[in-house]
């Protein structure tokens, strides 16, 4: 637990999109957006393991262990769905080849530094476009229904091919990097825009963090509030009173003691009932707009 909190000190969470100004977001903006709209039905989770040309590598055992954690995390979400009578079926298919490309900026620190730049999002997206371009050729032969996916951008192409090959509406595309000592990184890219497809970048193996990111991709909002901020005090009280064990409010805790609260259920599409107090919950997520 102590180690985990040290790791979390280096965490950042950004819902990135195009560039330019930042505006406050509204609840409805999170819902039904981009590739992962509602967390229901068949959902393909497609992890792509990425390693630096020089540095620690993904051994077969490492990948096996990672997929085991991923499976554990996703089964937890599936069980929560089942408790709510929601049909949800995760299909996990790891990309067969480890991609040799590394992180944008060549390291976790480099990636974090890059995020501070004005053209960071474009650079990030281009970086993962290049990885997707190489990865998509492996999926080509698996497409089952004509017309097959034509010439489109790289990440879009990979996701479109995966949707056609596995006949699923939602695809969770994950780029998984090796952590560097205690330096970790997790990012959800493009979740609040429709200019590019959304995807996950992570170095975390903990089921709680993986689930946190997957739920966020489907619209869940982070509820880890800083006590010092006036605006967030009211939100924190609501969360503490009504869903103290919500996974989105307890990053770092084990999934065994966590649940999915009403607000998160609403955002990920498990219910359409919007409760009045939802309007008083401020999310830390900001929307970056063009």
């Amino acid at each position: 637990m102590k180690n985990l909190s040290r790791i979390l000190a280096l965490l950042i969470c950004v819902a990135l999109s195009g560039c330019a100004s930042v505006v406050d977001s509204e609840n409805n903006w999170f819902r039904d957006r981009n590739v992962c709209k509602k967390l229901v039905g068949d959902v393909l989770v497609y992890p792509v393991f990425v390693e630096q040309k020089k540095g620690s590598v993904w051994t077969e055992e490492d990948r096996f262990m990672y997929l085991d954690s991923l499976q554990k995390g996703l089964m937890w979400i599936q069980k929560q769905a089942s408790n709510d009578s929601i049909r949800l079926n995760f299909i996990i298919k790891a990309h067969p080849k480890v991609m040799k490309k590394g992180l944008p900026g060549k390291s976790v620190k480099g990636a974090l530094a890059m995020l501070e730049g004005t053209k960071s999002h474009t650079k990030f997206n281009k970086h993962y476009d290049n990885i997707s371009k190489k990865a998509s050729s492996k999926v080509e032969k698996k497409e089952v229904l004509k017309p097959f996916v034509k010439k489109i951008k790289s990440k879009e192409r990979l996701i479109a091919k995966l949707r056609n090959a596995y006949q699923v509406e939602s695809v969770v595309l994950m780029f998984i990097h090796k952590p560097e000592e205690l330096n970790h990184l997790y990012l959800n890219m493009n979740s609040l825009t429709n200019m590019d497809v959304e995807y996950i970048v992570t170095t975390f193996q903990s089921p709680a963090v993986i689930n946190y990111q997957v739920l966020q991709l489907f619209g869940a909002a982070t509820m880890n509030y800083n006590r010092g901020k006036k605006k967030e005090k009211a939100s924190k009280l609501i969360v503490e009173e009504l869903f103290p064990d919500d996974i989105m409010a307890n990053l770092g805790k084990s999934i065994q003691v966590l649940t999915i609260g009403d607000y998160t259920k609403y955002l990920i599409g498990w219910t359409n009932k919007e409760k009045d107090y939802f309007k008083n919950i401020v999310s830390e997520r900001k929307v970056v707009v063009k």
């Binding site: 497409e143 089952v144 229904l145 004509k146 017309p147 097959f148 996916v149 034509k150 489109i152 879009e156 479109a160 091919k161 949707r163 056609n164 006949q167 699923v168 509406e169």
Partner: peptide, 16 residues
């Protein structure tokens, strides 16, 4: 219709 800025139709999209 495959428009330039919308995505081209795949078999799965047409079926669904």
């Amino acid at each position: 219709v495959d428009s330039k800025k919308t995505l081209p139709w795949s078999g799965f999209d047409i079926k669904s």
